[in-house]
Design a binder for these strands. Structure first.
Lengths: 109, 109
DNA sequence: ATCGTTAATCGTCGATTAACGATTAAGAGA
DNA sequence: TCTCTTAATCGTTAATCGACGATTAACGAT
C-alpha cells in the first residue's frame, strides 16, 4: 500500500486542517453537549414545554442550582440553546439551527 | 404554581427511575461515544470504507497506537462498533443497530 | 434605599479523560 | 522454535469534568 505511513513522530507540523477534521470537531463538540444525562434532560424539557423555562429546570433536576447553571452554560456555549434575560429570570430555549446541525451530522453516519 | 418545590435537600431518596431517566442515560452514553474528534473520525472511516479496517485507523489518525486502541475500546464498549479477530489483526465495523438507536434518539429531540 | 428572588460565577475537591511509551499477548510465517 | 507483526493492556501524567457551597450581580417590589 505504502500509504502515508508517517508516524508523525518528530517534527510533523501537520498544520493543515482538512474539512473532514473541522467537521469531526463540530460533531464531537455538539455530541459532547448532550453527552450527559442532565443535559439531555434539559434539552428534553426545553423541547417539551413550549415555554422557555428558566429556573424551573433546577426544580426538575436532582442537582444543585450552581450545577444546573454550569450545564446550561455548556449548552449555551455549544450553541444548542439560547438564554434570554427577562427581569431577574432567564428564559432558555433550544436553538433549532444548531439542533438541526447535530441531527444532520449524526444522520450522516 | 406550587409545583413540587422539593429542593431535594435533606432526605430525598429519589430511588425511582423514570423511563425518561433511563432514556436520557442511554442517549448521553451514546452521544458521549462520539463526543471526541478522534472517535468521530473512526466512525467516519468505518462508515466510508466498506471493508472493516483494522489498524489502518492508526495510520489515519495523528495519534499513538495505544491511544487509538483506547478510543476503539470506548466505541466498542458503547456498542457502536464491533471488533472481529482475524489472525493477528482485528477488523472493526459499525454496529448498525446501535447507530440507528443513536440516530433515533437524537432525531427525537 | 433596602430587601427578596433569581441566576451566574468563584473556589474547591475528587473522579475521570486523554495522551503517551513500554510491555504483553496472540498469530503467522520462516 | 524463533521472529515479526498486530493490537490490547499497563502505568503514568496532565488536564478536564462534575458536583457542591458560598458569593456576587441584577432586577423588582416594597
Amino acid at each position: 500500500m505504502a500509504k502515508k505511513k508517517a508516524k508523525q513522530r518528530d517534527c510533523d507540523p501537520r498544520p493543515v486542517r482538512l474539512p473532514d477534521d473541522a467537521c469531526a470537531e463540530e460533531l464531537a463538540q455538539l455530541a459532547w453537549a448532550v453527552a450527559h444525562p442532565a443535559r439531555v434532560r434539559i434539552m428534553r424539557l426545553l423541547s417539551d414545554r413550549e415555554t422557555c423555562v428558566c429556573g424551573e429546570i433546577v426544580d426538575e433536576l436532582p442537582l444543585a442550582q450552581s450545577t444546573v447553571s454550569q450545564h446550561l452554560k455548556i449548552l449555551k456555549e455549544s450553541g444548542m440553546i439560547n438564554g434570554e434575560i427577562d427581569g431577574p429570570k432567564v428564559c432558555y430555549c433550544i436553538n433549532s439551527e444548531k439542533l438541526r446541525t447535530l441531527k444532520d451530522l449524526v444522520a450522516a453516519f
